[in-house]
Design a protein around this nucleic acid. Structure first.
Lengths: 154, 154
DNA sequence: TAAGATTGTGGGTAGTTGTGGGTAATTTCC
DNA sequence: GGAAATTACCCACAACTACCCACAATCTTA
């Protein structure tokens, strides 16, 4: 029952404990390749959620950032915003990672944490926020969504 | 008399047991190619039913998702909605897959489960719901059906 | 038709997984 | 340099899941 390495799908409802720890779904841990050394890189997501990358995936992003010339202002802004909030985190013996207070606040996390596999990364959401985001995008994106659906056969 | 690999046709009425397991029709199992490793990926269907993909078929979808950059909001939404409800499931020694409570609720499954071969994937229905859906689509679709007639020769 | 194999269904058990909290090591700050 | 706070590591337990076995019904084959 192993999918491709470093690939994550599915949705899990876990709790954030008093120490700011969340469980990484067992299936996600199993999918991690060894060269990640049980480490993720955690950062702000583009929606109000947390993004969690397997380390090797992050290294890939880093090398892409490296190639963006700082001559361009957009590049500078993009590199800055991508890099500044990122920090590596190794999961403990029980399979949990610790989130920084800053990220917990950014994502508005309280007791519940919804963990979503986004194929090449993982998202951590406050369930209520995700619901709102879902409803908003429902109407707005209909047309563009159909375009996408044409390209990918489900 | 074997059909093409990973191809499913026909209708089967099975039961959902107390642990959320349904049998995969023996013919469907036989049709699965070896590289699927006896594994399906189960997710929400576009009607209120469950979709079951042979793993290799899903991997194809996955690699398409992987190529959608998360810089675009629409892409994020699309990847999220496609990936979040999906989960791999290997059938057990008796040929059953386990459905998640979330999917069982989505499809409104109770004791009976109707399993339908959809050529490249499998659908699992609550029989009552399928009846309703059938009746609704009967009249509506006459025109659209004519369009289809251009594309497919029966 | 009888024997054997296959298929669908039910349930028990051992191992895994998620969650809470305790203690020692490390860091921070006065 | 030492106290306070933070972090990392460890243990414990309840809930759940995957795996195994059993059996009845159906189909296959000699």
């Amino acid at each position: 029952m192993t999918l491709t390495n470093n690939t994550f799908i599915g949705e899990y409802a876990y709790s954030l404990d008093s120490k700011g720890r969340v469980n990484v779904p067992a299936k996600f841990r199993q999918s991690l390749s060894d060269d990640n050394e049980n480490t993720f890189v955690i950062t702000r997501g583009m929606d109000t959620c947390i993004w969690v990358y397997p380390m090797v995936q992050w290294l890939d992003i880093e090398s892409n950032l490296r190639n963006l010339s700082s001559l361009s202002k957009i590049n500078r802004t993009f590199v800055r915003n991508t890099a500044r909030y990122a920090s590596p985190s190794t999961y403990d013996k029980q399979g949990r990672i610790t989130l920084t207070p800053s990220l917990i606040e950014y994502a508005g996390l309280e007791k519940e944490a919804l963990i979503i596999g986004m194929v090449n990364k993982i998202e951590i959401w406050n369930p209520d926020r995700l619901n709102e985001t879902d409803e908003q995008s429902m109407e707005i994106d209909a047309a563009a969504y159909d375009d996408l659906a044409d390209k990918i056969i489900l």
